[in-house]
Design a protein around this nucleic acid. Structure first.
Length: 201
DNA sequence: ATCGCGATCTGCT
DNA sequence: GCAGATCGCGATC
């Protein structure tokens, strides 16, 4: 039986109701901040989303900007599915597809605060302090075991589960990281004062 | 604390 | 060919 959270910290670790695919059928600029504080689990392993970035195909930093390719095809499909890509030939990065089919917009998940399955995450990542387990888009995919095999999967069906946040967190915004195009758009969102960010705002 | 580098996949020129 | 939505390591300040 779940008990009601007595502190802000406890609330931040509580699981809200499961998010359905329809949650993502909105502007990527609405979905991105609403994901801060939500919990992402893959096969029961994961944590609280503390950092995301929004990408829309009308701006050149998005993978979908130049139209569909074998890699980005799922971005052009319906909302509520995952888009996983290989970054720099080494890492995997996971996005949530938003808006309507053909909009080709997505939210990149950049950092989690680990809460579930921390031993499994440590095993996958090697010796690491908890703060470094999921503090970057490539890191969190390694910690959760996300690969290309998870691309195109629905976000409301096992092995993936998303739970709404409990309460309303303080959200900070800033410029997106690691890009050279459309660098002026403030489409990075984070949980204020989180110690699990990929980089300070 | 910051810098440079290697790893080597995907898509564009 | 080359740049890129990255990361971890070792060298250096």
């Amino acid at each position: 039986m779940a008990r009601s959270p007595k502190t802000a910290a406890a609330a931040a670790h509580s699981l809200g109701k499961p998010l359905k695919r329809s949650f993502f059928a909105r502007s990527v600029l609405e979905v991105a901040p609403d994901l801060i504080g939500a919990t992402l689990l893959v096969d029961g392993v994961g944590g609280i989303i503390v950092e995301v970035e929004a990408y829309h195909h009308t701006e050149p930093a998005a993978h979908s900007f130049n139209g569909p390719t074998p890699r980005n095809l799922v971005m052009f499909g319906p909302a509520g599915f995952s888009y996983v890509y290989r970054s720099y030939g080494i890492h995997w990065c996971v996005n949530f597809v938003c808006e309507k089919a053909g909009s080709a917009s997505a939210v990149l998940i950049r950092a989690l605060e680990p809460t579930h399955g921390i031993p499994a995450m440590r095993r996958r990542r090697g010796l690491h302090d908890e703060r470094s387990l999921c503090s970057g888009p490539g890191k969190l995919c390694e910690a959760l075991g996300i690969t290309i095999a998870h691309s195109g999967l629905p976000l409301d069906t096992p092995p993936i589960a998303l739970h709404a946040r409990v309460g309303k967190p303080e959200i900070v915004t800033g410029l997106r990281i690691g890009i050279t195009k459309a660098v002026d758009l403030p489409w990075r969102y984070g949980l204020k004062d989180s110690k699990f960010l990929s980089k300070r705002f």
